[in-house]
C-alpha cells in the first residue's frame, strides 16, 4: 500500500512540477509586450541602446580649429599590446630656429585593435578617446587602417596663462 501511495505521489508531484514550468512559459507567451526583450536591431539605429562609455573605435580629438593635443610622444604606441597604433612623427623647425617633433600621421589599425583602452590610459595629454561606435565591419580590409589626424590639423598650443601658473 505504501508503495502504491508513493507511486501515486510521485506521479502527482511530476504533474505539479511540470505545470509550474508550463505556467511560466504561458505567461511569457500571452504577454509578449512585457516579456519580449530583443530589439529590432537595424530598425532602431536612430537610438541605439549603447552606453556612451562603450569602448569602440579610437579617435583623435580635434577641436573646432582643427587642432589636436597629440604631441607624438608614442606612449600609446608603447602601451598597445597589439601594435595597432603607429605614430609617425616629423621634425619641423619652429620660428625661433629650434627643431621640434610634431605628429605627421597617427595610424590606427582597427583590424588589430582589441579595445582594451590601454592607449587611452597611457595618453598623458588626453588627446585620444574611444567613441561608442559599434558597426565597424566593412567590405575592404584596407579601409580598416585609418589615419586619425585630420589633414591640415596641428598641435593645439598650450595657453600661455596656464603655462605661467605651472611655472
Amino acid at each position: 500500500m505504501k508503495a502504491l501511495y508513493n507511486y501515486l505521489k510521485e506521479v502527482a508531484f511530476a504533474f505539479v512540477s511540470l505545470a509550474n514550468g508550463l505556467l511560466l512559459t504561458l505567461k511569457y507567451f500571452v504577454t509578449p509586450w512585457k516579456s519580449i526583450i530583443t530589439e529590432n536591431y537595424p530598425d532602431n539605429r536612430a537610438n541605439p541602446s549603447v552606453a556612451d562609455e562603450f569602448a569602440g573605435e579610437v579617435i583623435l580629438i580635434h577641436d573646432e580649429n582643427n587642432e589636436h593635443k597629440c604631441t607624438a610622444c608614442t606612449l600609446c604606441q608603447l602601451a598597445c599590446p597589439n601594435n595597432s597604433i603607429q605614430i609617425i612623427s616629423k621634425q619641423v623647425e619652429t620660428e625661433d630656429g629650434k627643431k621640434k617633433k610634431v605628429l605627421d600621421k597617427w595610424v590606427y589599425h582597427l583590424e588589430m585593435c582589441t579595445f582594451c583602452k590601454q592607449c587611452i590610459d597611457a595618453c598623458p595629454q588626453d588627446a585620444i578617446k574611444m567613441t561608442n561606435s559599434y558597426e565597424l565591419s566593412c567590405f575592404d580590409r584596407s579601409t580598416l587602417t585609418k589615419i586619425l589626424n585630420q589633414p591640415g590639423s596641428k598641435l593645439k598650443e598650450k595657453p600661455k596663462v596656464t603655462a605661467k601658473v605651472q611655472e
Binding site: S17, N20, G21, L23, L24, T25
Partner: peptide, 10 residues
C-alpha cells in the same frame, strides 16, 4: 519555477 523544480530535470 522553470528548471530547479522540474521533475524531468531533477
Amino acid at each position: 519555477q522553470l528548471i530547479t523544480g522540474n521533475f524531468i530535470f531533477q
